[in-house]
Design a protein around this nucleic acid. Structure first.
Lengths: 346, 346
DNA sequence: GCAAGTAATTTAAACGTTTAGATTTTACGA
DNA sequence: TCGTAAAATCTAAACGTTTAAATTACTTGC
């Protein structure tokens, strides 16, 4: 009695439920006249299909489970936006699970087993809800791989690196290579780098890219120009002071995220070293705030939207039984602003 | 044949499906021994319940539809995080629809009818998916109200203002009042304000709060100290220059969002007016970047997480048939950083 | 006007659960 | 050893769809 079902509209139109289903889905021919009658009944009764029943019968929900490590982390909303973009285009729905890792487990991921528990719980819930597949957004896919027995539902990872499963990333190595090349094209040769934590794969890959450029362009190299930060502003600040105190200071610094670059800018300002006139700075991430800094920060933009979109594309392929291998890898692009200039001739 | 159902475990345990259901849900007593047998069968066959079937029978999905105008807008992820926090606690699921308004319609909302179409589509989809209720996150609820015939499913709005439906907000008037009071307590009396666009309800409410403080503390008042911006950095910059060029410039400015405050800081720096020594600045929103500015910006933090949580609370109440009226209104709090100081005696 | 072929429609089972109501089993006191 | 009440279990229908397979209704050519 609650809501109007296909039966109600069938009897109102003087037709069987099968016929109604056929006009609803266009699965078979139905005489125009009958069709009109059905349509009118639907209209008059303001019938709304019940996708739950449909899913039960069809064994397909057209719903994708999205597990995000933390939706409040800067990269996640854009990735979700990309996922949504795809979902909209192909009439899929998104069941969102937010692990809330930062708040529940702490930024430094100190509590690994609680993570496992949460992640497993999230997967189980989604499977009970019969999602057609899962995309996982975050940096810890390695801890998840193997733990999940997905019951035949495919899973695609994005943002983090994983070896065993399909995973969509941008090319960290190439991005760093290109950032460095850009500096070289601007005339820099004494280029320092402030890296992120070395247990992070992106840090290592970006360092690789940097070294590739150093080699390829035959840049002078001083090991004192390589500094290891911890992704936070304070480390950018401290390491920049160290770099600028060097007897042969660099004319440019590649900073591996914008947050540390804030520290770099601050240190330079305090030391009276004008950016970009005497020091060029290039960041990573294209965080929203990088446009509000003084000077406005030149930085590498991450293709987050594209990653989300590509994840869904890959997942859809796997669901259809096609190989996922050939979805294009999203690519970073340089955002030129005001923190890089040609080096002063000294 | 695909997946293991309650039937399989029933026959394996030598029991009826009803009994299995009872042990699964604890809906009726079952003999410990039988229970053990059932549990063992579940274990051995690695049975996973099918929530779709359950929902069909129960006419309840334990799923809440969330419609976000744009997940990439700064406030949305935190609100979603609050929603998720509640959902986790009470075993609810989130079906996320992202209207992608900024990208599809433009920031200035120029295309109203396309909005209507998207919003209506989103609602219809969620209803087909049989969500138990909807929470809407965004600033345009007024355009949605009335348009939605929700078929008896409740809807709660958050962030935006609506007159006809339940809606969860923080208190804009009070927040501005408190920000102003804080300035007064620091010894300021010549306080200017840079407002947002005047067609926005928060702008008007915040202005009310400001005026209430002006009246209550008997502050001197100069209409030239009220400036109307457009929420963007450039307007903050321009209006600050105007304020500082006044014959009787203010010693403090209340800026109605952090983005405009960036412009204020920039203008002050260019004019050689040190902040906070000769000009105090207080922002609104507590955007992430406000901690990275120089000086670090003092600002009003918005209780976004709490709003999300409260929305779910209200929705859950309505679903249970209780009055939603008494969920507490989340409250803003001041984040003291470095952009406010006692005024220089002049 | 009829047979044969095609098009439209219907019948009925199935998807995996829950849950009244009926039935069987167990426990207990006389 | 019964009779009865309480506890445990089962039967079967229902939730709202889809979809093979069966049936009925139309066309068409002769």
């Amino acid at each position: 009695m609650a809501s109007i079902s296909i039966k109600d509209i069938a009897s109102k139109a003087g037709v069987s439920t099968a016929t109604v289903s056929y006009v609803l889905n266009g699965t078979r021919n139905v005489r125009p006249e009958t069709k009109a009658r059905v349509l009118r009944a639907i209209e008059e009764l303001d019938y709304k299909p019940n996708d739950i029943a449909k899913s039960l019968k069809r064994k397909r929900t057209d719903t994708i489970g999205v597990i995000a490590e933390d939706v409040t982390v800067f990269n996640t909303p854009e990735i979700i936006d990309g996922i949504n973009d795809y979902a909209d285009r192909y009439d899929l729905h998104i069941l969102l699970t937010n692990l809330r890792l930062n708040k529940r487990i702490g930024k430094n991921f100190e509590n690994r087993d609680r993570y496992q528990k949460y992640a497993q719980g999230a997967v189980d819930e989604l499977l009970r809800k019969q999602v057609d597949g899962i995309v996982y957004i975050g940096v810890h896919p390695r801890d998840l791989t193997g733990l999940i027995h997905t019951h035949g539902k495919p899973i695609v990872y994005t943002y983090g690196y994983t070896q065993n499963d399909v995973s969509i990333q941008y090319d960290d190595e190439k991005a760093a290579y290109e950032a460095t090349s850009y500096l070289v094209r601007q005339g820099h040769s004494r280029i320092a780098v402030i890296s992120g934590l070395m247990d992070s794969i992106p840090s290592r890959l970006r360092l690789n890219g940097f070294f590739r450029a150093v080699t390829e362009f035959e840049l002078p190299f001083d090991p004192g120009w390589i500094k290891i930060g911890d992704w936070e502003t304070e480390s950018g600040y401290r390491l920049t002071r160290e770099l600028l105190a060097l007897p042969n200071p660099p004319t440019a610094i590649l900073v591996m995220n914008d947050v540390m670059a804030v520290g770099t800018l601050r240190a330079a300002r305090e030391l009276g070293v004008p950016v970009p006139e005497r020091l060029s700075v290039i960041g990573f991430d294209n965080r929203e705030f990088s446009d509000y800094l003084t000077p406005r920060l030149t930085t590498m933009d991450l293709p987050l939207h594209a990653m989300g979109y590509a994840s869904m594309e890959a997942l859809a392929r796997i669901i259809r039984g096609e190989p996922a291998a050939d979805v294009a890898m999203p690519v970073c692009r340089l955002v030129e602003r005001d923190s890089v200039a040609r080096p002063a001739v000294s």
